[in-house]
Amino acid sequence: MKNVLSIVSAKGGVGKSTIAANIAAGLCELGHPVLAIDLDPQNALRFHFSFDSGRTPGLVAADEHNFAQLFEPTNLGVELLSYGNSSEQQRMDFEDLLKRNPNWLKEQLTKLQLPDDAVVVLDTPPGPSVYMSQALLTSSLSLVVVLPDAGSYVSLPQMMSLLEKYCLHRQDFIDYGIIVNQSDQSKTLSKDVLSMLRSSFGERIVGRIHLDQSISESLACGQTALKYAPYSEGSYDLMACAKWVHQRCHGVGGRP
């Protein structure tokens, strides 16, 4: 399985699901077959596609045999596998499964025999967890989402060490980047943190998504921003991130 993109962050509430859903939609628009998988027990990725998606039992109910059947189509062309509504017991059992086999997800995806240009987008819960390690081990591309605030800035080193542990040494890992979400140049703090991030991470900052009301509204309407407000700056920013992934999938750029 060549192209697996994980969307990760050390902190919660930074907009990972929004970014995952929109990048998935953007990649579809760029011509890729796209699978989106929600690895977060909050089970919220589905709301970005429509309110009535998430009717399959979900990832939490997956085993070696039914994995392929759990995906459901969305109106954007993205094949979605939501986490699923689970009882506490189900969730713990599933997490046990993942703990026992750190490569479980990778194996399932390999079995799907996806075409070369397919991209799998993995949404993850914040901070270190069994889901994140599965996601990082499986992925060939990774995007770290931060907000332009102090909390995000101090949490970045933790994320970097996780990338180092799970990704950077792997031959099949292509590249990673940092996306600054909800950036607002009219706020001094936002501006300063962005320039600090730029000076510490330079070219690693591959995307910047402006704080744009359209993005919040799109979720309230059960849609991706790309569909809800295609001409908003937020959509342009998100599409730029999708293009970054698109280029890496085609071998443009990548780690030196």
Binding site: D212, Q213, Y231, G234
Partner: peptide, 29 residues
């Protein structure tokens, strides 16, 4: 360029012309 509305919406666009005192903007819609 980006036009930020009072409602918090931000719309991507580009200028058609500029002067020291103002701008002409071309929107997608």
């Amino acid at each position: 360029a980006t036009l930020a509305l009072p409602t918090g919406h931000r719309i991507a666009c580009h200028t058609s012309d500029f002067s020291a005192e103002g701008l002409g903007l071309v929107m997608q819609q």
